[in-house]
Design a protein around this nucleic acid. Structure first.
Length: 729
DNA sequence: ACAAATCAGACC
DNA sequence: GTCTGATTTGTA
């Protein structure tokens, strides 16, 4: 009697066996609905067997094998297995994180997609009666008349906002919904490359190099200064892949970036099927996109870290854009690095992979220096007139500060305003002020659940914790000494916005941070306003530093750059440098006189000198030498055992016990438990234990013997998780 | 003496 | 993770 081994979303490493009379080899990778205890779960069949793996257990039969869905291909199963092994996470839980949520419910999946067609009322509409500006509505009506019906794909090909217009048509009763089977084969579309802009010599050289590298596994690191046209290189490589009938996977850091990038690729590849994959998609949409990828019908898959697991039968190329970005590392549950897994996947599938960045992670840079990755460089800006911006430091020890701003910065802003150019003021704190203090007794408003200060949000007249979301009203008087006149301390985006309004009363100021862009479509609308020149001064957080192209922007002001200069986190300077270089790159994307002003109390710090030269290599090599001397990553490999409990003593007790249980292995160092950087979060007291080795193999061997022991010595009320290759200390 | 709280272990 | 039955702890 055939048996299937099913990996389930439970914290158990081994799969579970079930009887499956009808199972056949093709069912490996398929989902199976199975009884588990008194529950019913959906798991993945990872193997077939003739004999049960445990003796003396009465096997239950599977309830159902979902044969309507395409099975997870072997390479995705292999990647999941690698992931389970490398990150020491149960296979079933790895598979659960990579599958669209919709598939994990035992209710059947409807494999249809909506088709829109005109109703009689719709046919009766005379396009000429529509307002003259309703061009898209007229185009949609015309397309519906000609095609008979339109899929979502077809709608998006017409315009990214077509689905909204269709909703409006539906409300008016002009169209109706029909369902078409999703698995209908897409018509073969001969791919015609369109006419791209001319390449710079460097872009051409990069492209030639990758082409010469062939179709097999070659890892490339594309070091391209801001504005050098990395995306154009990606586009040509993707075009090559599509022309060979293969799929391309493009990973980007955040969802914010996706709509813009998606629109760009859509107009670049009008005939290609492009789907996005990220966690903010509606369940149904994510499933649809995933299935289109799995069936090979999606030519380009554009997504955030979870897209690294997308089934792609015809994969021909992987691109990881902004590869240094921390959002490629998942920070809870399965703590995987999508960038690292992308390299593993490229190797498994024997396809080239391009990691692109203006400021690569030191890990990748190290790999380029030691020859594991091949380096491609774009050092000149693609727009002829553009130059690297001039950088000036403003010494905060000499210049007086009013509301966070120094006179030279205000002067520079006024100058740009007079010339009709745009400026950007960058602060890394949202809200009004990062703290509320009592000047009389020194009391600070702290979060009751976290070891953090509450942030003043003046607009909502509330204090908020940015770590756990806790909110409180702003007190009238100091709870410690009763004094009135509590003062906000430090600068947030809201406070700077207000200060700028006072300094520059005629300026049109726009604040861009997580609070001002909460509403759906708020960010794209703001970006449009900036593009259209309806804004003079932008105030914002790092949200503004990424990828956006503002041709009219000539000045970037950085209010305070010092937080990352002398930090407990050894990666802080790497991150600060990347961030400052990125935000500086916003100035002068299309002109010769871009300028960056940085307010700092440490103008002598070497980071600024490197930044002034715009020299990534110099700085990266300095940092690498430092890391090597100190025995830090990428020269050593780390794993962090993170634990939390109600009280710090329990957390530390557990970690001390874990330390005592650690196997002794020469070449692997186990450090003492220490409280986390944020020792209290949401009422939990956190601490961690660092394990380090110069050898990845030894570290893995250590973890493989240690973790099973730890699991057997579970301590009540202490939760713990292992973070392999942690990014945060 | 009984109920509530806690715990180890299975779950296939 | 969720659930079970067994054991410990608490209370009348």
């Amino acid at each position: 009697m055939p048996i299937v081994r099913v990996a389930l979303d439970v914290p158990v490493f081994a799969p579970f066996d079930y009887l499956a009379p009808s199972a056949e080899p093709g069912d490996v990778g398929r989902l199976a609905v199975v009884p588990f205890g008194r529950r019913t779960l959906v798991g993945v069949i990872v193997a077939l067997a003739e004999k049960a793996s445990v003796e003396g257990v009465r096997l239950k039969p599977v309830s159902r094998i979902l044969r309507d869905l395409p099975p997870l291909p072997g390479d995705v199963l292999a990647l999941a297995a690698f992931c389970s092994d490398y990150y020491h996470h149960p296979l079933g839980q790895v598979l659960a994180t990579l599958l669209p949520q919709r598939l994990r419910r035992s209710s059947p999946v409807r494999l249809t997609e909506p088709l829109w067609r005109l109703t009689e009322a719709g046919w009766a509409v005379d396009p000429a009666t529509l307002p003259p500006r309703a061009a898209l509505r007229r185009r949609l009506l015309a397309a519906l008349r000609v095609e008979g019906n339109l899929s979502r794909e077809a709608l998006l090909a017409l315009s990214p906002s077509a689905p909204q217009v269709i909703r409006d048509f539906l409300a008016r009763g002009w169209v109706e919904r029909a369902n078409a089977p999703l698995r209908v084969q897409a018509p073969p579309r001969p791919y015609r490359p369109d006419t791209p802009p001319p390449l710079t010599r460097e872009q051409q050289a990069a492209l030639d190099a990758v082409r010469a590298g062939g179709a097999g596994f070659v890892p490339w690191l594309l070091l391209g200064v801001t504005g050098s046209g990395k995306t154009e290189v990606y586009a040509h490589l993707i075009a090559d892949a599509l022309a060979q009938g293969r799929q391309a996977l493009l990973l980007v850091p955040e969802i914010n970036l996706t709509p813009q990038t998606e629109a760009r690729f859509r107009s670049r590849f009008p005939e290609a099927v492009i789907v996005s994959l990220h966690s903010h998609l509606a369940e149904g949409e994510r499933l649809r996109h995933w299935l289109l990828a799995a069936e090979g019908r999606a030519d380009i898959v554009l997504g955030t870290r979870l897209a690294v697991f997308a089934p792609l039968p015809k994969l021909g190329l992987i691109v990881v854009d902004e590869e240094h970005d921390a959002s490629f590392k998942q920070q809870d549950g399965l703590r995987y690095s999508a960038r690292d897994l992308a390299v593993v996947r490229a190797q498994q599938r024997e396809v080239p992979i391009v990691l692109g960045s203006a400021t690569p992670s030191l890990e990748s840079w190290h790999n380029a220096v030691n020859g594991r990755y091949r380096l491609l460089t774009l050092s000149t800006r693609a727009v002829q007139a553009a130059r690297a911006p001039r950088l000036t430091l403003i010494d905060l020890r000499r210049e007086p500060v009013t509301d966070g701003l120094t006179a030279p910065l205000v002067r520079a802003l006024k100058e740009r305003l007079k010339r009709g150019e745009q400026s950007l003021v960058f602060v890394n704190r949202r809200g009004f002020a990062p703290a509320l203090a009592c000047p009389a007794c020194g009391w600070l408003a702290g979060c009751p659940r976290c070891a953090a200060k509450l942030v003043v949000h003046l607009r909502e007249k509330r204090l908020r914790c940015h770590h756990c979301g806790h909110g409180a009203v702003i007190p009238r008087q100091c709870p410690a000494c009763g004094a009135f006149e509590l003062t906000p301390l430090g600068q947030g985006t809201q406070r700077l916005e207000r200060a700028l309004q006072r300094f520059l009363p005629q300026a049109r100021i726009l604040r861009v941070d997580r609070d001002s862009t909460r509403r759906r479509d708020a960010l794209p609308e703001m970006l449009r306003q900036v593009q259209a020149g309806e804004v003079d001064v932008l105030v914002g957080t790092q949200m503004l530093t990424k990828g956006h192209d503002f041709p009219r922007l000539t000045l970037v002001g950085i209010v305070n750059a010092d937080s990352g200069l002398y930090s407990a986190d050894f990666r802080a300077s790497e991150r600060l440098f990347a961030q400052l270089l990125q935000v500086s790159g916003r100035a002068g994307r299309a002109c010769a006189h871009g300028e960056v002003l940085i307010q700092t109390a440490f103008p002598g710090h070497p980071l600024f000198a490197a930044l002034a030269h715009g020299n990534y290599r110099e700085f990266a090599n300095t940092l690498l030498a430092e890391r090597e001397a100190l025995g830090l990553p990428p020269f050593t490999f780390q794993a962090l055992l993170r634990a939390e409990a109600h009280r710090m003593e329990s957390t530390l007790d557990f970690l001390r016990k874990a330390q005592a249980l650690a196997p002794r292995l020469p070449g692997v160092e186990v450090y003492d438990p220490v409280p986390a950087l944020l020792p209290r979060l949401a009422g939990k007291e956190r601490a961690q234990l660092l394990v380090e080795s110069a050898s990845r193999g030894l570290l893995k061997q250590f973890l493989s013997t240690w973790l099973p022991v730890l699991r057997r010595h579970q301590v009540r009320n202490v939760r713990w998780a292992l973070d392999v290759d942690p990014l945060e200390p």
